[in-house]
């Protein structure tokens, strides 16, 4: 046919399509758009049938890009991507990060000096060690965190950083690269997170937030054990700066008496 018409054919080049429709909606394409065939007599055109952003007003969300990536991709794949599908992970994280960056920028502008603290976070520690190797954290997480922290600083906002678990090995990077000012939640029962060592090594550079154990002491300890832990913290953090708080949301199994003991003790014994 090409010869008869004296034309060249066109070779289309497309990436291999691994995803063909919107999750949960087989009728929609990857953008969430559905199409209906509209007949015009001698044939039909696929016309747009819906507009996913029609009701769009604003975006929101908390800032933990890798956590969102895990939710989008599945935790195990997301973690493996850091080693074996790095370009994909990098591209996806960059999109997620830009979304949050723009959101925070707008929020700070609207806040005009009334925002004191911002939350920059990513869980890097597990119960006994870092979840990822330091090279992966340095490549995928830290440079974007730094931009986010720089944005906050440029608006005069303090950077409150959250990472669960045994994160000792990455704290120097968090201080030097990200530039954090407050570190939460100090799970001191995790290896490397012993309070004395943290005060000795980082006490001059960061404010500690948390440090009241929420895996053992608060949910399962006695009132006296809660009091002792708060008093231990007051003593250990005396040479540094510490904001008293539980290491995580108080869990429903926590006895009310323990919660009261936590706040009573810091009120009575923690006065400067």
């Amino acid at each position: 046919m090409y010869t008869r018409l004296h034309i060249d054919g066109v070779l289309h080049i497309n990436p291999e399509r691994t995803v063909t429709h919107f999750p949960g909606d087989p009728q929609a394409d990857i953008w969430g758009i559905r199409r209906t065939a509209v007949q015009y007599g001698t044939g039909s055109y696929d016309e747009f049938a819906n507009h996913p952003l029609a009701d769009f007003t604003t975006v929101s969300g908390e800032y933990e890009p890798f956590l969102l990536y895990c939710a989008l991709r599945g935790m195990e794949l997301a973690m493996m991507d850091l080693l074996v599908d790095q370009e994909f992970a990098e591209a996806a994280l960059e999109h997620i990060f830009r979304h949050y960056y723009a959101l925070n920028e707008r929020t700070y502008e609207l806040g005009r000096g009334r925002v004191d603290i911002t939350y920059v976070a990513e869980d890097l520690g597990g119960q006994t060690a870092l979840l990822f190797g330091v090279p992966e954290i340095r490549r995928f997480i830290l440079p974007r965190q730094k931009k986010m922290a720089d944005l906050a600083r440029s608006h005069g906002i303090h950077v409150f950083y959250h990472t669960d678990g045994a994160a000792r090995d990455i704290i120097p990077d968090l201080l030097d690269v990200t530039g954090i000012e407050i570190l939460n939640p100090i799970q001191w029962r995790c290896p490397g997170m012993e309070r004395e060592g943290l005060v000795r090594d980082f006490g001059k550079r960061v404010i500690f937030h948390g440090a009241v154990d929420n895996q053992h002491t608060l949910p399962f300890g006695s009132v006296e054990e809660v009091r002792t832990e708060v008093r231990d913290n007051i003593r250990i953090f005396a040479g540094a700066r510490w904001i008293c708080a539980p290491c995580h949301n108080l869990q429903p199994v926590t006895p009310t008496a323990n919660i009261i003991a936590l706040y009573e003790t810091i009120h009575t014994d923690g006065t400067l």
Binding site: E76, M79, M80, L83, A129, L130, F132, E136
Partner: peptide
């Protein structure tokens, strides 16, 4: 020995 982390465990298991 903190030479491998969760991602390394996952790919080896796979």
């Amino acid at each position: 020995a903190n030479e491998y982390f969760v991602p390394e465990l996952l790919i080896s298991a796979r």
